[in-house]
Computed example of a mutant assay.
Amino acid sequence: MFNIIGYRTLKTAVGAALAIFIAEQLQLDFYVSAGITAILCISVTKKDSLKASWQRIVACVIGLALATVMFEFLGYHVIVLCALLLLFIPIIVYFNAKKGIVTSTVFMLHLYTLEQVTLDILLNEILLLLIGVGAALLMNTYMPSNEKQMRNNQLELEQCFQKVWYEYARYLRGNVTDWSGEELITASNKIDDGLAHALKASDNHLFRYDDYFYHYFKMREKQFEIMERMLPLISTLDQTVVQSQKIAEFMEELSKAVHPGNTAIFYLNRLHELTEEFREMELPSSRKEFEVRSALFHLLYEIENYLTIKKKFKPEPERTNGDKGCRNM
């Protein structure tokens, strides 16, 4: 039943019912307004809910104060209500509490309906507000973890990277052109999805900033941009030389080493050795070979950028020990 209804729908229903129940037991006037407030304050993340609740408190305090002054001095007339809203809304926008406009308007209309303002009435409205906000915050103490989705995105993204490196190596080795390139599209989607989940996860931690997955997907985003830049460069290499064979072998190593862990320094050292080896080889014997080798050196430069980005990435703390000794990317 929980899966069918959805956790947010269930929390909204329970939160509204709880707020109305408490307000009704306290014999507050307009007790259903506590339920409305609770519904409006329940959000998709804890930080959003806390922000929305605070904005509604600020807006309601300002609205009740402003309504008290205008209604008591100018009377309980529609024209005064119109003037009140014309003055109130810009003030709330100025104080960056726009999410509280609807809730505070409801409370101001209570005063307009009663046609009087007393301490008991104001206390009634404040209690309605606090009960609704409190019920919403209580419901939002539970937020389902999306770590499973992030880890799935991580795994599928790394599989795409592995495939891309493998296909790059195949082309360099034998100009094989039967790859559709769909992994590039999938990787882009997985990065966007992973970043969205990571931002949502960080907004559900009020007292700590859980940013591992956010930094992970940002790191992969930068690496992916490099891999995309490499594609047109590789596609121009229609002539196979010794250097392209060696780079293909290196790319195959990278393909097998894509992993959340971080030992990029190993592959950077290997890359530097490969670069020095190329520099010590005989000069190209033709213009065509010169162009190919020049493009290959550019390719090495892009691979170095790819590895440097991973080198700067801080691994997930609890998984660091398990990654020791693994040559992974």
Rank of each mutant, 00 (worst) to 15 (best):
E249R: 15
R279Q: 15
E316V: 01
L307T: 08
V241E: 06
E282M: 04
E316N: 01
E316P: 03
D238Y: 11
E277C: 13
K310H: 11
R270E: 12
N262A: 06
N262L: 05
S294E: 07
L307Q: 01
L268C: 11
Y267C: 02
K246T: 00
K311S: 13
P315W: 01
K312E: 02
I265D: 09
H298S: 08
R287I: 04
P284S: 12
S286V: 02
M281L: 15
V241H: 10
L268H: 02
S244L: 03
L254M: 10
H272W: 06
K310I: 03
G261S: 08
P284K: 10
A295M: 13
E291N: 08
I309S: 03
S286L: 04
T275K: 11
H298C: 04
R279T: 14
Y306S: 00
K310D: 10
K256L: 14
F290W: 09
P315K: 01
F313V: 00
E273M: 12
K288T: 12
K288Y: 13
H298I: 00
R279G: 14
M251A: 01
R279Y: 15
E280Y: 08
H298Q: 06
Q245W: 04
Y301A: 03
T308Q: 09
T263Q: 10
Y306N: 02
L300E: 08
E273Q: 15
E302M: 10
N269F: 08
L274S: 00
K312P: 02
N269M: 08
H272I: 04
N269Y: 12
K288G: 10
T275C: 07
V242A: 14
M251T: 00
R287C: 00
F297H: 13
E282H: 11
E291Y: 13
I265S: 13
E277I: 06
M251S: 00
R287G: 09
L299G: 11
E280Q: 14
T308A: 03
V242P: 14
E277H: 15
K310A: 09
P260V: 00
S294C: 09
V292Y: 07
T263G: 06
V292I: 09
E249F: 14
Q243P: 07
Q245V: 01
Y267F: 13
H272D: 06
E276Y: 02
K256N: 09
L299D: 00
E291G: 10
E252H: 03
N269T: 10
K312F: 07
S244C: 05
F297E: 08
E276W: 06
M281T: 15
T308G: 03
K288R: 13
K311G: 10
T263R: 09
E277N: 15
V292L: 07
I265V: 04
E249P: 15
I265N: 14
T240G: 04
L300Y: 03
A248E: 00
A264K: 15
K288H: 13
F278C: 15
